[in-house]
Simulated scan of single mutants.
Amino acid sequence: MSNYTKILVALDIYAESHPVLEKALQIASSSKHINIVYVTVPMVNYQPFGMAYEGDFFNDLCLQSKAKLKELADKFKIPETQIFSPVGNPADEIHNTANDIKADLIVIGTHGRSGLKLLLGSTANGVLHGVKCDVLAVKV
């Protein structure tokens, strides 16, 4: 049995996230130990006279994100109370969610496509900085 009882799986619901979730399920003794999070990045439109938020479009995006996350949770039998969909900076919100649920492991996918973040990717790299628990980066 795993020593991890509170696993937070950070997903990109618009990419192939099944390998990340499946890896977390291999580590967990059951899906009741899995929590999933998808962070919606706020959409800000910079206009010549200030900033404006993309109202209805952004609200629809948040609702679609929650629906996709719930669909994944249902498929893997993860309770609805263990689904999180905050809005903000992905690394910060993953840290906040991990702290709130007292996670002992964060599982995150990584693409690692370019630049200094070649090995991990920007979100995975951001999660590593300042994290208070173990992190498993899964290559997707």
Rank of each mutant, 00 (worst) to 15 (best):
A124S: 03
A24P: 05
Q26L: 12
A10C: 03
V41D: 11
A28N: 04
T81V: 10
D92N: 12
A52L: 10
V138A: 08
S114C: 01
E71V: 12
T123W: 01
M43S: 14
A24N: 04
D134M: 10
A137Y: 05
K68P: 10
H33Q: 15
L136Y: 01
Y46S: 13
K132F: 04
D56P: 10
I27C: 06
N99R: 12
F76W: 12
L118N: 10
R113T: 08
V44F: 14
H129A: 02
E22L: 15
R113H: 14
I7C: 04
D104L: 06
C62N: 09
K132A: 11
L61D: 07
N35K: 05
K66V: 07
F84Y: 09
S31H: 07
I94L: 03
P19G: 05
A52V: 13
D92M: 13
Q47R: 07
A10T: 01
K75C: 07
N96K: 15
V131Y: 06
R113Y: 12
L105K: 01
H129R: 10
I7R: 02
V87E: 04
I13R: 02
Y53G: 12
H33C: 11
K132M: 12
Q26D: 11
I83A: 09
T97V: 14
I36F: 00
K77C: 07
D12E: 08
K32P: 09
S31T: 06
G50H: 01
A10F: 01
A24R: 00
L105A: 05
E16L: 06
N45M: 15
K32W: 10
Y4Q: 02
I27T: 01
A137G: 07
V20N: 02
V127A: 06
K70V: 15
M51S: 13
N89E: 15
V37E: 08
Q47K: 07
D104Q: 07
Y4R: 05
H95T: 06
V44M: 15
L69P: 03
V39S: 02
A98Q: 02
M43V: 15
K75P: 03
L11H: 00
V135I: 04
F58K: 01
N125T: 05
N3D: 13
L11D: 00
P90Y: 06
L61N: 04
M51W: 08
A28Y: 02
I36Q: 01
V127P: 03
A124F: 02
L136R: 05
Q26E: 13
